[in-house]
């Protein structure tokens, strides 16, 4: 199958023809004690769509991701994945269903090598689970796929270093390589470029563009860099104080008065930090 198209026409077509829901949250809520971090959010993500979530720090974006990927259970409300309720499932089962995520706070395996970090993701993807008496390198193709993912984020040369030896920006790239290697149909990316140096960011944007242009994945991106979000997204949702403020095309969101007055000014301040 060769459906990879890069032209704008292909993109808009994809948006119109694929209207199947992949994720649907219904009044999903998460409270920590008295504080409601995510407040009755009902959001729909369509198959093969590139959607971004924006909102100031503390708006509940990461918490919303935690609810989708299973690190946290909602206080109330429901989450459907391809029509199936998933909010009771533990994280590893959601990953197997096809929900992969990267973390805002770097979350890698410090004592393992860079390659081994990514190789584990490939091992998980291929369902090589309870093999106990074969050497792990017997599964040579896993290593090759892992190197492929490292290549895509420009980290291949560091493959035999322990992850703890990487610079901060490199750890962020490793985080993304792990997600790429996991190769799930839904990718949740929590501020992938945060903490990277200016010259590292374009590479990651290119990776995101490539995935979008292949149109075989659904991407949900949390990002502060508003130009980047505008450029990449089919649709944008805005969270503010745990509530969903708006959801629409980039133009709609940029022209939305409520979004502008309540929040967009503040966002640029955030991005400076």
């Amino acid at each position: 199958m060769n459906t990879t198209t890069k032209d704008a026409k292909g993109q808009s077509h994809a948006k119109e023809t694929t209207k199947e829901k992949i994720i649907e949250t219904v009044n999903v809520t998460k409270s920590f004690g008295g504080h409601t971090a995510v407040n009755a959010v009902s959001l729909t993500i369509f198959d093969k769509e590139f959607k971004s979530i924006i909102g100031p720090n503390g708006a509940g974006k990461t918490t919303f991701f935690n609810l989708l990927s299973g690190q946290m259970k909602p206080t109330s409300g429901k989450i459907h994945f391809r029509g199936k309720e998933i909010h009771h499932l533990p994280p590893h089962k959601r990953t197997k269903l096809g929900i992969g995520r990267s973390f805002q706070i770097t979350n890698v395996f410090p004592t393992l090598t860079v390659l081994e970090n990514v190789r584990l993701a490939v091992q998980g993807k291929h369902n090589i689970h309870y093999s106990m008496f074969r050497h792990y390198r017997y599964y040579k193709h896993l290593e090759e796929e892992a190197l492929d993912a490292l290549e895509r984020v420009n980290l291949r040369e560091k493959s035999d270093q322990p992850a703890s030896a990487l610079a901060h920006g490199e750890k962020r790239k490793l985080e993304i390589a792990i997600l790429l290697a996991l190769d799930t149909e839904l990718l949740l990316l929590d501020e992938p470029t945060a903490g990277m140096s200016i010259d590292e960011v374009p590479q990651i944007i290119e990776v995101l563009e490539n995935i979008r242009d292949q149109r075989d994945r659904t991407i949900l991106l949390i990002e502060h860099k508003i130009d980047l979000v505008k450029h990449l997204s089919d649709s944008i949702a805005v969270l503010f104080h745990g509530k969903q403020l708006a959801d629409g095309s980039p133009e709609e969101i940029m022209n939305n008065e409520q979004v502008q007055s309540a929040y967009l000014g503040g966002l640029y301040d955030d991005a400076e930090n």
Partner: peptide
């Protein structure tokens, strides 16, 4: 040095992340 052994060492390093890669 088996895939299970490697996964165990990853669990030692970062249990939550191993789960998020689809391992029980």
């Amino acid at each position: 040095h088996s895939p299970v052994g490697r996964t165990l060492q990853a669990i030692r390093d970062n249990e939550e992340r191993v789960a998020s890669l689809g391992f029980s």
